[in-house]
Simulated scan of single mutants.
Amino acid sequence: MVVYACSQCDTVLTSRVSRVALPDHAGQKYSHDLLPALLEPGTYVVDPGDGHPWQPEPEPHGVRLQTYHITGPPNRIGIAPGDLRGTVFIPDRLGGCCCGWDGQYGPNLACAGCGSPVATRVDDCGFWQVVWLTPEAVHPVAVAGPAQQVIDWTELPTTPPVDPCGEWRPEWEAAAAVALTHLLAVSGGKRVSVPEGLVSEVFRRTIDGLLPPGPSERHLTLTGPGLPVTATDIALIPRHPQTGEIWPCDAEAVVPLAANVWTYLAFHDRRVAVRHDDPPPLLPRTLFLPDGRVFLGALQRMGPLRQPWLRRIHDSLIRQP
């Protein structure tokens, strides 16, 4: 357990926090709604980033689009806004936003002790609320506290796919987008079959649109804690929400998926639940689509796209998102 302090004057800037895995939706821009906090209180993440500051998108016909490249300096540290201490706002870096701050002008929080810029608060509409500590402006200090309790694989959390308004949850759209990049990478550019039901609803349409037509040559199977062990060439497995580790299995290839989404896919079949639950689970109003911006970002972070099918997919999305 650590606190983060100012590198210039050692003023403590956070409460005690423990590290967890970076969520797939950390860089997501979603709709025009006010979203909740990205992280649970008492936790922090490290975002490797891509080294580029946030940039506004091009302005076609003089219209400023409210979308941004959600990136930042390498290894920035994310915390829940409520875990911030000892800072003040930098007034000339708070403009140009809608319902809050998106950090497009750089760090907007300074150390209350010495005035050095140390962090960027993001809480504008469409952004998950978070404070990003600038890595070179802060340093960790080990402190006494209870050891982090790592949950067992049998205790993974679960998140329903649909919100009370009948919309697909943005966490699901981001998690599916990241998983799809792994699935495409291990597919070898060949057709992939997926299990029927909600897994098919989440992945089938996108796979059909991105991979060549024809009979399936690879097969995706849900594999993980609490499920029967089955032989498969591609396993859809959970990624631990705290450690970031993936479920160990003997499949030829694996596709990691956020644990809270994987758990729902593995143990909730809406076709059965609708008939027996009272009240029945919420059903979506639209067909599922992964988050295109998250998908493209995850695809670019995979490194040089040497495989021709990945390059074609990447280039087609750049031309027509």
Rank of each mutant, 00 (worst) to 15 (best):
D124S: 06
G72K: 11
G78V: 09
G113S: 12
D124R: 02
T159D: 10
K190P: 00
E167I: 00
A174D: 07
W172L: 06
P195M: 12
G86Q: 11
L180F: 06
A176M: 05
D83W: 02
T159Y: 02
Q129T: 08
A185K: 07
V162F: 01
S187E: 09
V194E: 13
P157C: 08
L109S: 08
G78F: 04
C97G: 15
P164N: 07
G72H: 09
L183M: 13
G145V: 10
P107C: 14
T87P: 01
E136A: 07
Q149P: 01
C165H: 14
V130L: 07
G100W: 13
P135I: 03
G62F: 09
C111F: 08
E196Q: 15
T154D: 12
A142C: 00
N75F: 13
R64A: 15
A175P: 05
V118A: 06
Q148Y: 04
A185T: 10
L133F: 07
V186E: 01
V63L: 13
W128I: 03
V143E: 10
V186S: 11
P91H: 00
G166F: 08
P58A: 11
P146K: 04
T158D: 05
V141E: 14
A174E: 05
P58H: 10
I77Y: 03
V130C: 12
D152V: 02
P161K: 02
D123W: 01
W168K: 06
V178S: 05
P146T: 11
G78Y: 03
G96R: 05
A110T: 07
L180S: 10
G115Y: 11
G197E: 12
G82Q: 05
V122S: 13
N108G: 12
P164M: 07
W153E: 03
L183R: 05
Y68D: 11
W101F: 07
G72D: 13
A112M: 04
L65E: 12
P164T: 01
W172M: 04
H139D: 05
G189R: 04
S187H: 00
A119L: 10
Q129R: 14
P140N: 08
W128K: 00
D102A: 13
V130N: 08
V186D: 11
E196K: 15
V186W: 06
V122W: 00
F127V: 02
G100I: 14
L180G: 07
G106S: 03
R85Q: 15
Y68F: 15
A175M: 02
N108C: 13
Q66V: 10
H139E: 05
E136L: 02
E171K: 06
L133G: 05
W101R: 12
T67G: 09
G113V: 08
A144N: 11
V143H: 03
A176P: 03
V178I: 09
A177W: 00
Q104S: 12
P60R: 03
R169F: 01
V143M: 02
P140G: 08
I70V: 15
